[in-house]
Design a protein around this nucleic acid. Structure first.
Lengths: 191, 191
DNA sequence: CGTTTGCTTGAATTCTGTCAAAGCAGGTGG
DNA sequence: CCACCTGCTTTGACAGAATTCAAGCAAACG
């Protein structure tokens, strides 16, 4: 049940078997079915979720009711509204499942305790956040300096697994273009 | 010389006077004049810089030679090509000074040692990266869900100090539009 | 088998980019 | 003190690209 989680953990930080059991004590498993919400805008995010199996997305909804996908999460990824989780403020993002999914989740209190108690956990989370920050910076750059077509090509090169599992209108949303536009880009590309 | 740095530090982590002296031993001061590079694309980023005084920007240059500003940094901000700094790979960003500036910098080796040696430093940096990550996520959201005009309004509301110190064509670059477009947006706004 | 969901296509519209030129400080040197 | 750069902003005309609105179609779902 925690296979992928600790696999990911051990790639970033040392972890003895005893310490793994301690960490496991702070985690729990949550199953969520397709189309169910893990988090709704306005609620406080109670957990950081790690995807053991399945697919989720986080997205915001603008004043016209359009969805804007912030992030996808497949196996091995974390997903949360980190700001809401850390501050206790209402979330600005929604998170829901695109497939039936299994998550490893941690609550705020467990997160705080574990950060104090476990050096390994500290190291692991530190690395995760750092990588996530770097990935976001790349995304900003690509969003500001590439055309939609270039962004799409870069996306399918970077996340080939995601492309196959996710409807194209959601990829369009992630890339910041309309579904019709992405469809036309794809047509131009095959010609 | 390190006033702002430790002021920022103490807002995020406890720091005794003795520990401050230890941390100070790992830092150094660097002055940089307007238009000088702190980092050039292709070189390895040797430092993370904290701005004590002045203004810097990081930016990428696309294949057509257009600059795309990733980040501004004024007093109290960090700036670096974190990916290059941590991996030793060539930087994809340029960093230069928009005004004569004073920086507090740390090298990679000092960074690694200090993270191992000082719990306070760990905590401080952990908080900084977390905040930076959250800020970037907001920027992605705003970039994908707001019109250029809304993005500009949001920018001047969020960073009023920056607006006054920086040429408008650079704000346009940060927002991902051409200088002409920003000029027209501003004209529409005053009417 | 009817309904929903996602993808595609077309035509009209709106917005941004491009190119070129002009105006406007601020700074420099004669 | 003035003429002349230089960097920055503004404006106009035009081309190009994405959005909007509407419709059609195929596959998946219950």
């Amino acid at each position: 049940m925690y296979e992928r989680y600790f696999e990911s953990f051990r790639k970033k930080a040392h972890l003895s078997d005893e310490e793994q059991e301690i960490v496991k004590g702070y985690l729990s498993v949550k199953k969520i079915r397709k189309r169910q919400y893990l988090l709704q805008e306005g609620d406080v995010d109670k957990v950081i979720a790690f995807v053991e199996k399945g697919t989720l997305r986080s997205y915001s909804v603008d004043e016209d009711g359009n969805e804007h996908i912030v992030q996808f999460a497949i196996e091995g990824w974390f997903i949360s509204d980190l700001y809401s989780f850390l501050t206790g403020e209402p979330a600005t993002y929604n998170i829901d499942a695109l497939e039936d999914s299994e998550l490893v989740v941690i609550s705020r209190s467990a997160y705080d305790e574990l950060l104090l108690k476990s050096t390994s956990y500290q190291t692991y989370i530190f690395h995760q956040i750092t990588s996530a920050y770097i990935a976001l910076q790349k995304r900003i750059t690509s969003s500001n300096s590439l055309s939609p077509e270039q962004r799409y090509k870069s996306f399918i090169a970077t996340y080939p697994e995601i492309v196959q599992r996710i409807p194209q209108h959601m990829i369009a949303s992630y890339l910041g273009v309309k579904p019709e536009t992405l469809s036309r880009i794809r047509r131009r590309m095959v010609l």
